[in-house]
C-alpha cells in the first residue's frame, strides 16, 4: 500500500511532506518515546505518535519510515511541517487514538502476515 492509498482509505489529513505520498507502507509502529522508536521501528512503517515537534522528522528519515501519522488530535508544529517538506516525509493526521488507526491498518493488511 502506498502512503496516498492509506490517506484515501482512512481519510487522513495531509499536512506536510506531500512529495513522499508515493512511498510504500509495509509496516506500522506506535510509540511516543523517541529513543524507543529509534531503536525498534521497522523500515517502511507508518509511525503513529502523539509527538508533533520537529525532531520526529529526523527519526523518520533515519529509520527510513514511509510516513508519520500524528494521532490523538495533536497538531504538528510549523517547523515539523517545514522539515517534512524538505525531507519528503509525509505528515498525516488522525483525530482518534493510535490504537484505533493501528487496528484499521492491520485489518487492511499492513504488517499483517495473515493477509498475504
Amino acid at each position: 500500500m502506498l502512503v496516498k492509498d492509506l490517506v484515501e482509505k482512512f481519510d487522513l489529513a495531509v499536512t506536510g511532506g506531500k512529495s513522499g505520498l508515493d512511498r510504500e507502507v509495509t509496516e506500522g509502529y506506535c510509540g511516543d518515546l523517541l529513543s524507543e522508536v529509534m531503536g525498534n521501528a521497522p523500515a517502511g512503517c507508518a509511525w503513529m505518535t502523539v509527538q508533533g515537534h520537529q525532531n520526529i522528522v529526523a527519526v523518520a528519515v533515519l529509520r527510513e519510515m514511509a510516513a508519520i501519522v500524528i494521532t490523538g488530535g495533536q497538531i504538528p508544529d510549523a517547523e515539523t511541517i517545514q522539515k517534512a517538506d524538505q525531507e519528503g516525509i509525509p505528515i498525516l493526521q488522525w483525530p482518534d487514538s493510535s490504537f484505533s488507526l493501528a487496528g484499521r491498518l492491520f485489518s487492511a493488511g499492513v504488517g499483517n502476515p495473515a493477509s498475504e
Binding site: 511516543d32 518515546l33 529513543s35 524507543e36 509527538q51
Partner: peptide, 15 residues
C-alpha cells in the same frame, strides 16, 4: 517531547 527514556546510550551500545 518524548526524550528521556534512558535508551540512547544502550541503543548506541547495541548497534
Amino acid at each position: 517531547m518524548g526524550f528521556g527514556a534512558g535508551m540512547g546510550l544502550p541503543n548506541m551500545k547495541k548497534n
